[in-house]
């Protein structure tokens, strides 16, 4: 990863931090972006101190669509790879009652993601190089009563990445979709997660870096998730609607 610069979108996510550390350890320089610049600067300092790479923080708000072109054109040097990690889980009950929250979830996970990745894709396509990683979710594989606002936004994002992969295939630009299953991060603090199905951020990060290196298409971090989602997506709707999963 020497002489490679990677842009992390949503770099304060626990998964993103773990990923950035592995990339930096392998010699990559980094742009760390999201809203909380103070935290980003601390992590950038950490990466510089630990690994001696060039890491810098830069403000980015996925929901501020109009700011994306300036944000991306302001990056100098331009990234050779992008990892999109930002996401908003929200609370399903609240999202049902309060459209503002539902909108925040959708605008973060889907609209905002599409908005920035289109700019990235255009740039990579023109330069004929680069790679894109998007962290989506198994929640997008099928809508369920207890998280369908989040789930549908991730479903949209998964479909988007799949289309983008096809489009960029001809230019040799790989697109990796990551579906981590449960991960113990600040997003899920206080939620009782089944141990066997829960990964830690480092495990997800290692899978992401391996996925980049092997130019994978879709990865589930814990293999069991692929099986579980395979079953869940095949349950007939007639039956599925009566289940509480």
């Amino acid at each position: 990863m020497h002489n490679t610069r990677i842009l992390i979108l949503g770099a304060n996510s626990d998964i993103a931090v773990a990923t950035a550390r592995i990339l930096a350890q392998e010699g990559a320089d980094l742009w760390l972006s999201s809203r909380n610049l103070e935290e980003l600067e601390k992590e950038a300092a950490n990466l510089r101190t630990r690994y001696g790479v060039d890491a810098r923080g830069v403000r980015f708000d996925a929901r501020d669509f109009d700011s994306h072109p300036d944000f991306y054109s302001g990056l100098d040097p331009k990234p050779d790879g992008v990892v999109l990690a930002f996401g908003l889980l929200g609370d399903q009950q609240t999202s049902q009652k309060d459209f503002d929250q539902a909108r925040a979830v959708m605008e973060t996970n889907y609209t905002g993601a599409v908005c920035i990745l289109e700019l990235v894709a255009a740039d990579f396509d023109r330069r004929g190089k680069g790679f894109i990683v998007g962290i989506s979710s198994v929640a997008g594989d099928r809508g369920r009563a207890d998280n369908y606002i989040y789930g549908s936004s991730k479903a949209g994002f998964t479909a988007y990445l799949s289309g983008l992969r096809q489009r960029l295939h001809a230019s040799g630009i790989p697109v990796l979709t990551v579906k981590p299953g449960f991960v113990a991060t600040k997003m899920t603090v206080g939620k009782p997660l089944p141990k066997r199905l829960t990964a830690d951020p480092e495990m997800v990060a290692r899978a992401i870096v391996k996925g980049i290196r092997k130019r994978k298409n879709v990865i589930y971090v814990k293999p069991l998730w692929r099986v579980i989602m395979g079953v869940i997506t095949h349950i007939p709707e007639k039956v599925f609607k009566k289940l509480s999963l």
């Binding site: 601390k42 992590e43 300092a45 950490n46 101190t49 630990r50």
Partner: peptide
């Protein structure tokens, strides 16, 4: 433990 950044050397 989560506060595990090195800030400066």
């Amino acid at each position: 433990r989560p506060l595990d950044r090195m800030i400066e050397f």
